[in-house]
Design a protein around this nucleic acid. Structure first.
Length: 218
DNA sequence: GGCCAGGCGGCCC
DNA sequence: GGGCCGCATGGC
């Protein structure tokens, strides 16, 4: 039986705290969450630096600047026309909230109702900017879970999220750190082409590649 | 020079 | 509900 708390403890002991999300403000987290959709984080950094150089890295700034300038500044992150619209729509919707408090579920549904904000982007915003305990499911998380337990047969985003959230304390700091550690480990070891010989989770994982045989070859 | 990245919505069936 | 497509740049 997969013990998620043990998985977390192992990752934390190995990599240490990750201090996520990498950003200077909550608005920058929200902007980064949209810009990183299907995009390498390095490219997002180039776009965010452009916004900062124009003093335009807040939601109020995003509302004010022209579509043409915004598209130009975020160009390095790719999909810049569609992301320009998504940033504008999101800035407008979230600024309108103006500090009004909702139950967490209602806030999530509101954010999800913004066109261009799907479940992963919404949960990234909720967890890292609004400090609400929703676990972020991304491609890395799905890959890790499927490898850790090859009996899992989950398909939808909600399948994965329900599984994780029903097996852990609903704690923002835990969700924050765990997701960050999953990403770091996915880039380091649990890649598309896995490097199980350097993975701290290898003894907890029933992925098809055999740890002993990999070790003996290296 | 090809492949891919921390998704999403619009289609189609 | 699932599968495919367009959206685009820069790093490797």
């Amino acid at each position: 039986m997969l013990d998620l708390q043990q998985v977390y403890n192992t990752l934390f002991d190995y990599y240490g705290p990750q201090y996520w999300w990498p950003a200077d403000s909550n608005d920058e987290i929200i902007i980064g969450a949209i810009l990183t959709q299907n995009t390498n984080w390095k490219n997002v950094e180039l776009a965010i630096n452009n916004l900062k150089n124009e003093n335009s890295c807040s939601l109020e700034d995003i509302k004010k600047i022209s579509d043409d300038l915004l598209s130009e500044l975020i160009k390095p992150s790719g999909f810049y026309n569609i992301k320009c619209k998504r940033l504008k729509d999101t800035a407008s919707a979230l600024c309108d909230l103006n500090g009004v408090e909702f139950p967490d579920r209602d806030l999530r549904n509101f954010i999800l109702s913004i066109k261009g904000i799907g479940p992963e982007t919404a949960d990234s915003i909720l967890l890292y900017a609004y400090k609400k305990p929703f676990f972020v499911i991304d491609a890395y998380t799905k890959r890790l879970l499927n490898r850790l337990d090859n009996q899992l047969n989950y398909h939808t985003y909600q399948d994965y999220q329900n599984f994780i959230m029903s097996h852990l304390e609903k704690d923002c700091q835990l969700f924050n750190e765990f997701h960050a550690l999953i990403v770091v480990n996915a880039k380091n070891a649990c890649r598309v082409k896995p490097k199980c010989n350097i993975c701290p989770l290898v003894k907890l994982c029933n992925f098809g590649c055999d740890y002993e045989s990999i070790n003996s070859k290296s």
